[in-house]
Design a protein around this nucleic acid. Structure first.
Lengths: 145, 145
DNA sequence: TATTGTTATACTCTATAACTATA
DNA sequence: TATAGTTATAGAGTATAACAATA
């Protein structure tokens, strides 16, 4: 009876489980650099999207804006990011990567393919491409509904 | 330069983000029933896999076994699960659904398709099937490496 | 009035250490 | 000695309330 199909056929269940596993696959690499998964996503987001306001950045990395302070503070203290003023809108505090932050982000990006290969080992190259494009489509639609 | 490709092409990044979104898509339905995402996964896992020991169950739902007590206690108190002894191995405490728990799990499973449809709206039926099978494959391999 | 950003604080979830009971 | 399970507790992460500054 397919109506009683296993929870393993629920995409939502699989996404939440694999999301945890994907995050865990990074903990070792991040711990060596004294970074958290939040820091990872912030650095890579700024690296590819460029400078962002606090709210916009929080929205992308799925952190509540009210928790941005404690998350971002260590990055600023270590000189990986900087917060500047926006002359056009003096409420905004534009967050951007410093040169050291750009270097750190590029180095993390370089580590991605190795970790990714391990995670995606069970899939063929074609299957990986299909999976990537499907996930990307879901994420882009989820961001801007 | 594709080596500098966007972080959006990282499957790990997409999985962790979509995992959060998939979990959030359930919070309303679960809150109405006074359940957490952990409870959700436990009920559905027991519903399809049958009775399990505490360690085996914790392993599947990716909860540290030491945190199972506080997670499982409310379910037991509300009569949705029960913990019994295993005559074959008196260390084990077998966790299983009560009739009320079975009913609750079935009801949650019924709500899945509606939530799933919303999440997967951007994809065609064929794409959904492909995504589901790829994710399932990754999860099964990740569980038993 | 709405938006951007922040602080203080309570709450939940997760991880570290150590222990009992059985195999 | 190894495994199943538990407790206590510290730490990381998340959510609720309230506020200041600017648009």
């Amino acid at each position: 009876m397919p109506a009683e199909a296993s929870f393993e056929s629920s995409v939502g269940f699989l996404l939440s489980q694999l999301g945890v596993l994907a995050t865990r696959s990074w903990v070792g690499v991040l711990a060596e650099r004294d970074l958290t998964p939040h820091h990872h996503r912030i650095l890579l987001t700024l690296h590819t999207a460029g400078p962002l306001g606090a709210t916009a950045l929080a929205d992308i990395v799925l952190i509540d804006p009210r928790n941005m302070g404690p998350v971002v503070a260590p990055l600023e203290r270590r000189g990986l990011i900087q917060r500047g003023d926006d002359p056009a809108d003096r409420r905004r505090r534009v967050i951007s990567l410093t040169p050291a932050g750009t270097e750190a982000a590029a180095e993390l990006a370089a580590a991605t393919s190795r970790i990714e290969d391990e995670l995606l080992a069970p899939l063929t190259p074609d299957e990986r491409d299909a999976l990537r494009s499907h996930l990307r489509l879901l994420w882009q639609k989820a961001k801007a509904p």
